[in-house]
Design a protein around this nucleic acid. Structure first.
Lengths: 176, 176
DNA sequence: TAAATCTCTATTGACTCACTAGACATTAAT
DNA sequence: ATTAATGTCTAGTGAGTCAATAGAGATTTA
């Protein structure tokens, strides 16, 4: 039950093939753990945000700067495009650009696209609500109240942090 | 990419075998979604909390009251026992009891046992920290700050809510 | 027309999830 | 001492997910 990445190094199981090839040579488990895809997406979008909104940036360049496997990044950026987070230009001098100012792209949005809703349970999801099948009374459910509070706390943080604010805070940290 | 449980009913894919048999006939996806095991654990522990600390309660009874498959519940309670959340009596008139007062058992603890750390990334985990492999400087990482704030927000909520407080709030809601 | 780019679908191997099965150990009543 | 009732433990299973990889197709510019 103990997640593999919480075991100490000597007892650690062998790596997944993904992890062996990936720049993240660890196994992750944990109920709220972001997928590799989400981490890749955040890195790539920060690269695009840093690059600015002048010329488009080619997938290959983004892949290199963000250290994301190129073919995987293609899929990720395609999803980002479908959700409006980025836009693309095709053909000869094509590439990717942010779809909106970096200050209008929150981490909550990025994570929802790659990994789905933030809620701990469908019955507390704002973007994808569903009643639990066994729940006799949602108003009095002891568990739902807790999960709702947890979701709201997470969402508050992730909605308020944007690519722009993250970039700014990291620049501030670097300066200091 | 859109998680299946956020699609509307008519386009919903067929259920997993687990979901078909389970009392939760839905598919879940979502980065922070609790496992079925965690939900079962919370239900079962609330049943034990409600039952009180007098006589032990048999697995079979807990399973029925909490509506959890009996064999699966055995495994869950065994893990809970190993972490000290419950204790058991073996033999003829055996059964399970909470290992501590319900006011000393937080949801954070339950979830950590069933689903692992609360952190969104190993580098922000308090209970199972690990450095990310690609991270050149943790102090200036744009992403880490966001994930850390999210983890802290979630943990604050889940650490503060206990079986006792959940039970009380649900009783209050029922009275109103 | 060719070259460079993004777009889309399919496939893969290792792993996880939610169980299920069944043998084993312990205790209390008879 | 035996038996019945309980918890303990290990292993297995089928469907599904994750993190890619492969390769053909569409679009644009030179």
């Amino acid at each position: 039950m103990v997640p593999k990445w919480s075991q100490n190094a000597t007892t650690q199981a062998k790596l997944t093939p993904a992890a062996q090839k990936s720049i993240y040579p660890m196994e992750f488990t944990g109920f709220a753990m972001l997928s590799q895809k989400a981490r890749y997406a955040m890195h790539a979008l920060l690269v695009l945000a840093e690059h600015g909104s002048g010329e488009p940036m080619m997938i290959a360049d983004v892949a290199e700067r963000a250290r994301v496997p190129r073919k995987f990044l293609e899929q990720i950026l395609l999803e980002m495009k479908k959700s409006g987070i980025v836009k693309s230009l095709r053909g000869r001098a094509g590439g990717y650009l942010l779809g909106r100012p970096a200050s209008k792209i929150s981490f909550a949005e990025i994570i929802r696209v790659t990994d789905g809703p933030l809620a701990l349970s469908p019955c507390v999801s704002v973007t994808a609500y569903q009643k639990c099948a066994d729940c006799t009374d949602e108003k009095t459910c002891a568990i739902r109240k807790v999960l709702l509070a947890a979701r709201d706390a997470t969402a508050d943080v992730l909605e308020s942090r944007t690519l722009a604010s993250a970039l700014a805070s990291s620049r501030r940290a670097r300066a200091a």
